[in-house]
Write a protein that binds this DNA or RNA. Structure first.
Lengths: 210, 210
DNA sequence: TACCATGCTGACCGCTCGGTCAGCCCGGCC
DNA sequence: GGCCGGGCTGACCGAGCGGTCAGCATGGTA
């Protein structure tokens, strides 16, 4: 960049800033905003604390940048999953469950924000994201509604079941839950089967494993 | 208490200690362990910071005491809800949803702990609590299994749906979710109806509103 | 070679944190 | 009255926090 276009206050997107973001995200996801110090972020990123402040004006700015990236990742879920209209609820539920496990950090940050009771700006962003995801799912779901179920209730139940299964993943072996259903994808399949009575157990068309 | 029985290191259960606990719980539930200072707890309780340390040896001790109380409250859910065996899944789901809303703080602390990725002692306690609740539900559920559904999957789906509905309660008006289902109890009813196909919509026996 | 913008750092600042302590207050007992 | 013990407090401590800053290193330009 030539000197004229130097954006002094916003040097984002540089490789160094990326390394800091990469280091900060798992920390914030694991311990939350207050549980992580800028010193810890700096050490994890292999740079000095002052350097972190060189790239991000404040701790809140860094946190927001981390959030933005997680939100993008989360949002990409909507496109990647594809409509449940082709393939039924089962493949959709499995894909959703797979995505949750593949993006544990983003999911963690998302849930953490939803749990906050104070109305911060970040929380509102998380809420909008949740509303967007829910709407998108509800909209593409009515085809499976044939069992007489409300598509909104179906969507929340499906997402909620998958999320709770994820959160309990370490506890499941200690419960009475059948061994088969401890497997995330099998569980998602079962939930989809319960919620979409039109498909009964007559859909062994699991064709796209990847 | 006569001087001989003075338990110097453990003056718990005194009214003053209770006031501190009462003040600390909503704070911890809203902002987490790291998000609350002992100063804030003291102010909220109307006592000096030193007094807080007089009753609780450390911040971790206070946090543990708050957790213990929330866990007791959460555990009482299991007894109060009653078996779904009498009354079907619907009344159970409604009672569960009601309990979630009546004990927002305990639920918040519980979810917060489950979200932590580090294996702290408190987290293990929360996990055991979750396992206990899930087991208890699974055990008393098989009666509703007639639809061919696994009782474990049914239990997780029911709990997950109710929990997610709770967490999204502020967002729901901004989504496509039908206005009726924004009401927690109606939503719980609908979820129970979806999960227990034997009951179809033939159970308007909502007799015990309190 | 001299120059300079830029990425980066060690040292530092004021402040708040969790935690300590000497001592005040006050009701019960002689 | 004098004493005493426990609930409670203001004042304080070292540590770590978020954030700042003068200056070092380095590579492109002339």
């Amino acid at each position: 960049m030539h000197p004229a276009t130097a954006q002094a206050a916003l040097p984002e997107e540089t490789p160094a800033a990326q390394r800091i973001l990469d280091a900060a995200r798992p920390l914030f996801a694991a311990r939350g905003f207050d549980g992580v110090s800028m010193q810890q972020v700096a050490v994890a990123a292999g740079v000095s604390k002052a350097n972190v402040f060189h790239h991000f004006a404040s701790k809140a700015t860094l946190y927001r940048a981390v959030l933005r990236r997680s939100a993008d990742e989360f949002r990409s879920l909507l496109g990647l999953l594809g409509d449940p209209q082709h393939g039924g609820l089962g493949p959709f539920a499995r894909a959703h469950m797979r995505h949750l496990h593949a993006n544990l950090e983003s999911v963690g940050m998302f849930l953490r924000l939803l749990g906050e009771s104070e109305l911060t700006v970040q929380r509102q962003q998380a809420e909008e994201l949740a509303a967007e995801a829910l709407d998108s799912l509800i909209e593409s779901l009515p085809q499976g509604q044939r069992g007489g179920h409300d598509s909104g209730a179906q969507a929340i139940a499906l997402l909620g079941a998958n999320l709770l299964h994820l959160q309990l993943r370490h506890v499941l072996p200690r419960t009475r839950l059948g061994a088969t259903l401890r497997d995330p994808e099998r569980f998602a399949t079962e939930v989809a089967r319960m919620l979409d009575p039109t498909a009964h157990q007559t859909t062994p068309e699991a064709a796209d494993p990847c």
